[in-house]
Structures are given as C-alpha cells and as structure tokens.
Design a protein around this nucleic acid. Structure first.
Lengths: 243, 243
DNA sequence: GAGTGGTCTAGACCACTTT
DNA sequence: AAGTGGTCTAGACCACTCC
C-alpha cells in the first residue's frame, strides 16, 4: 500500500483502521461474525501483519472488534451476555448488577423539539419516535426513560417490536436497523420528582432523583439516540471508574 | 532476560511492566521526571526495544506514564494543567470546565468509622484525618466535600498546608507525601439537602443534590482517600463518557 | 495438525525536539 | 546533528481452539 501524500503525516495503520471501519459501516462483516485473519488482511491491504495488528488493536480498544485467541477477531455486538450492561451504570448498593426488564409506557411519532434536535443534529421539526418506558426490578419501577429516535434511521419501528424486546435495546437497533451503538455521553443532575415521576416511581413528590441524559453515537460520531432517564437511588447508585 | 518458569504463561512485556511499576513505586523516577529511553531500558532488562515499548505503552494507557515524541517518557503527575480535572467530572451546562477553588472548613484528627474503615481497608478505629471543605466557583459554593485520609499514609498533615493548597489536592499528596492517585471509583446518588448542606450550599432544605462518594487508589489498588461530596446541579452537571 | 491471535526480536527508517 | 519516541517490516516462535 502506498502512503498517501499528506500535508500532515498519517500513519499507515490509521489508514488501515479507516478502511476496516468503512467495511464495518458498509456491513461487509456483520455483528457477531468474524473478520478475515490478520494474514489475510495483510495480504488484502498489502501491508505487514504487524501493521494490520496495530489497526485491529486500536479498533478492539474502542470495543468495535473483539479478539479471541485461537478463534479469530469478531465484530462486537450488544447481544452478548458480557456486554449487556455496557451502557447501564446503575447497580445495587451491595455492588451486584441489576436484573431489569423494560415496560413500554408510550410510543408516538412526533417531531424533534429544539433540545433533542440539537443533540441529534436533526433539522428543526424532523420526524422522530418518542418513546416512554420504565425499567423495572422485579415489580418495582427503578428508572423512567424518555427515548427519542430519529425517524429516518429507525424507519418502520413499531410499538409491538419494542414491547417484545428483551434485554438491551441496542441489540434491537443493531439486528433490526443495522445501527450500532458505539459510545455515549451522559450528563447527570439531581432533580426533584414531579407529580408524574413521583407516581410512576412510587416516591413522594419532590423526592430527589438522578436525571441521566444520554446521547448515543454510532460510527463517525453520528448521534442515533437521545435519552432522558429519571432514576430512584434508594438501594441503588450510579457507578463510575475514573482513571 | 529469562522467562520465569510459570504455571500460567506470563508475557515478557508484563514482567517488564511490573519492573517499571516497581521502580515507580520505589520512586526511582519521580513525578514529572523522565524515565530512561526505550533503548536504555531494553539494555537494562536485556530485551528488545519492541518489548519495552509494549510495556511502556501499557503504562501510558493507564496514565502512569506520558510519552512525548522527541522528548522522552515522563512519570505522570497531577500538577499538569491538562490533567488538573482528571478526576473532576463536574462541568457547566454549556460544557465549559469549572474554575474552582477550595475553601477549608474543618480539619480534625479522628478515628475511622465502619463505612470509611471498610472502604480504606483500615482496622476499626485507625487514626485518620477528617477534613471538610467547599469547592467554590467565584463566590458561590458548588460542592461540599468530606475527605478522610489515613493517618499512617499522611502522617504530619496539617491544616495550613491544606488551606494553602491551590489546584488539585492530588498534586499535594504526590509532592508532599509521595502518594500517587492512580484511579478512583465513584458512586453517585441523588439526595435531599440536610439543614447543614442547605445552608452551606445556599439551597433550600430538601433540595436535590448529587452525592458523590469516591475512593481513590494508588498502585496495587491500595486505597488512599475516601470522599463524600454533595453537589448542587443547577447550571452544572456530572459528565461521563461511555464506550 | 492446522489455523488463529499473541509475543518477541532485529533492524530500518520517519517524525519530532533540542542542541 | 544527535537523541527521543513512532512506524513498519519480516520472520520466528508460542498459546489457544477446533477438527
């Protein structure tokens, strides 16, 4: 492979990384499938195995690929057990993961308001799906979520599909709409429960709740989902590792 | 270098990483200083430069070392401008970093209670410093922190030192006590402001606050600091990147 | 045993910083 | 020009998985 004439130096392995990402976006290899072996990729791109290796390492570090010694390199998916809670940071106070199930409360087609439109980089008034759901732990509601999805990306989404989805919604996005959630940014505030929230979450009005805003992105930092969740934190908390 | 006979395979570069970490712990290279060049280290450990490289890469990924092309590899420090906010996740709603200064409110020698003792892995009743401070933005208090430090590690700590510390306390720990904060774990809840908190933060009693518990660790996962902070989130929020 | 990713080496050369 | 980290190569061999 020829190094592109560049005003600023761009390493070969980054170019390879870009080509691999393109193939991922184009769906050449689907979530859960294995990609070609390192030697095959090296042949294909006419570089050494070491260079392919560095590109794959970078994508694995970003959780786009998963390496398995002796088996191969696989396209990451949200359906796997071990990543079910990849974006869920709420745990019980004792530290155990929460087993939640989703209860659909509302589903509507609508138009993006200013706040959502800006976060999702949509034109004002773009068509969106506006969804409300609760996350239950056993019989008790722990989180109430408002979820907004761009109509263009999730065309044809319907209520029944969502109501029947078990596990993470991100695996649904992936399998049904070919949209892969890669990273997310959360903004957290403490707020007082409104009348409606208090009733839904069975707390007193004005009770302190965690409000978690999330924008989720796919490849190339393209936003695909807007969320606002209100979470009761008695017996539960939000965890974060800093380094 | 001879590969250690091992029941389970342990890569060479991990062993080198361990040796480098030992030197860091022992203080052979101090924060801000440069470590020997890759070729020097390769000679010293009798391995190839590539192997040293991989070990250094790993430590750089953990933020223990900082690589600077053309200059060398340096021991990370908390005094640098760009890492001042390494552990501070509170930002203004517009996204700009907050410029805070610390105001010391209380300083006492005491004994660890059960909760703190457990988190800091101290024996019940161990001597600790018990500190209260506020983080101000301009004239307004934004966060109220309770900070507990093990007496053994921070022997000789006094009130004036803390009161005169500008910037992150972690640089003080580093420079004065040789204790390097490496990583931290935070647990976040929404709580209602107590009488005392309401007065300190100038909010109404019962107002929702973010309660952020943090345990900070040094090398080998040894806990060095316990914190509980209460944070007002009007105009500010806690940010987190998920991937 | 064959195929995969993972480690390690030795050497060449490039990009960046300082002298 | 010298010294540092950064890239890239080619090849050998190791560890793991599956047939």
């Amino acid at each position: 492979m020829q190094r592109a004439a560049a005003p600023r130096f761009r390493p070969l392995y980054e170019q390879i990384k870009g080509l691999l990402t393109q193939s991922l976006v184009a769906g050449e290899w689907k979530p859960g499938e294995s990609i070609p072996s390192e030697v095959d990729l090296a042949t294909r791109y006419k570089v050494s195995q070491g260079t392919v290796r560095k590109a794959v390492d970078a994508l694995a570090a970003e959780n786009l690929l998963i390496r398995r010694q002796g088996k191969g390199t696989f396209v990451a998916t949200h359906s796997e057990e071990n990543v079910q809670h990849r974006f869920l940071r709420i745990v019980a106070d004792e530290g155990s993961a929460v087993a939640t199930h989703s209860v659909l409360l509302g589903f509507a087609r609508g138009r993006a308001n200013n706040e959502v439109g800006q976060d999702l980089r949509l034109h004002a008034g773009s068509a969106v799906y506006w969804i409300t759901r609760a996350l239950h732990v056993g019989a008790r509601a722990l989180v109430l979520d408002e979820i907004v999805l761009p109509g263009e990306i999730f065309a044809g989404l319907d209520q029944d599909t969502l109501a029947n989805t078990r596990g993470s919604w991100y695996s649904l996005y992936e399998s049904t709409f070919g949209v892969r959630a890669i990273r997310a940014r959360e903004q957290i505030k403490a707020v007082a429960a409104s009348e409606y929230l208090a009733k839904s979450l069975k707390v007193v009005r004005g009770a302190p709740l965690l409000r978690v805003d999330r924008v989720t992105y796919t490849y190339d930092d393209r936003p695909i989902e807007w969320r606002r969740g209100w979470c009761k934190t008695e017996g539960y908390h939000y965890v974060n590792e800093l380094s």
